[in-house]
Nucleic acid binder design. Structure first.
Lengths: 231, 231
DNA sequence: GGAATTGATATTGTCAACAATATTTGTTAA
DNA sequence: TTAACAAATATTGTTGACAATATCAATTCC
């Protein structure tokens, strides 16, 4: 959290976006305490504004508000993690099903361009970009499928997935996104709903399988981790 | 909105629940303006508290916050209405599918008891209760299907459905809930997922078909409607 | 040395006041 | 009578101060 304050006062949306992406990009680890006054100083705004933003982030599922104690980056339990994947399957299978019926040339081009960019980043070893584009691919599908409600719900679920992988990802995990994304795009463009659903199902199962949701909980964060400056 | 203030200070959750149910029960019509200071007087709390509650209700999709102008009970467009039903089908079909696999004796009893209560209210002509129980039936399915995430999402969608029916329901609509709910329960108890999905799909299509989403927008609310006392 | 207690400090929760913006009311002109 | 304009009022947005609660540091006791 090394955001520099600028002279233009930050809007609530700016602040929300900044904290959101710091969590999703894993700069803020699960369990991190977010002090209102501290954030207010960082963003150079009144504390009441921060409270408002934190309320929103809590509704997004990215932070946990504990009465009288403050806000913490969320630490989803194993049960929650499974539920997130269940919800994602529910939504994303339906979205690709719909997209198979509605995809047009422009949509197909956008999908292909996106996966090509993913492939380029992946092949160049730029894994940070590859991972970011991988998440954005899911949101592109949601946008193209034209359900604002499901797209909004999915956005939260994808964000929470980032928290979950931060907590539970085993060491051997690797990003296999472009291959499965390509297969998905081809099924969509071919209007093959059954295949698209199967690929999406497999893809999400693959992501979930890389997480250690069977063993012990992820190591509890100690107090020093929580209290050390996050910069 | 004739809530009487009590001596115990209302909690934020109390206030939220009260406004929520007033909207869902159609005591507060779509388009109604909710003034912060007025609500603060009604509930005998500081206005800042009301602002917090209104933020939550906006995230629930039940009200619309217009900068510098205030909060209004939401008036979903036809596109939004269709999207809500699409999202509901996505979620509710998956929930009944899962419930067919996990239902036990206790769950079956709860479902049957609920539909019986619905049937009694319906047969006694107590349509207010019948409609309330009808909505609660959907939430019971969500609870039993054991996905907190989908249950939470569905709660918001069911609430918004109430707004939509308030705006778009044709005059000839009637509640045919108990019959379809009974068929659904039997499919679930028989572990027949295909049938359950089909009944749920048909049930939601039935609700949607009773709305006039093809013709002109619901009549615009005129100034007299907005300014008349809402009690 | 560890646990319990106390006091100091930090943080969150709440509030009323003021600034900014919108709405309503009153007045004037055509 | 209607439209335009100005003034008054209402409402929302923001802030800093204070109350309530939690955390941390220091001290004492076993």
């Amino acid at each position: 959290m090394d955001a520099k304050t600028t002279n233009r006062p930050a809007t609530d949306q700016d602040i929300h976006d900044r904290i959101w992406s710091s969590i999703v990009d894993r700069q803020l680890a699960p369990g991190t305490r977010l002090k209102e006054e501290h954030l207010a100083e960082i963003f150079n705004v009144n504390r009441a504004r921060i409270r408002q933003v934190l309320q929103h982030l809590a509704r997004d599922g990215l932070i946990t508000l504990v009465p009288n104690r403050g806000a913490f980056v969320a630490e989803p339990s194993i049960e929650e993690a499974r539920d997130v994947f269940f919800a994602r399957r529910t939504i994303e299978e339906r979205l690709v099903e719909r997209l198979c019926a509605t995809i047009d040339d422009q949509g197909a081009r956008r999908l292909r361009d996106h996966v090509a960019a993913e492939r380029r980043a992946h092949d160049a070893g730029d894994f940070e970009t590859a991972i970011r584009l991988s998440g954005a691919f899911h949101m592109l599908i949601a946008d193209l499928a034209q359900s604002q409600i499901l797209a909004g719900l999915l956005r939260d679920l994808v964000s929470r997935t980032s928290l979950i992988t931060a907590l539970y990802q085993s060491r051997s995990a690797h990003n296999c996104g472009p291959d499965e994304h390509e297969a998905l795009v081809e099924a969509i463009v071919a209007h093959d709903a059954a295949a698209a659903i199967e690929v999406m199902k497999h893809h999400l199962a693959h992501i979930e399988a890389q997480l250690d949701l069977e063993g012990e909980r992820a190591p509890a964060r100690n107090l020093a981790d929580i209290l050390s400056p996050r910069r």
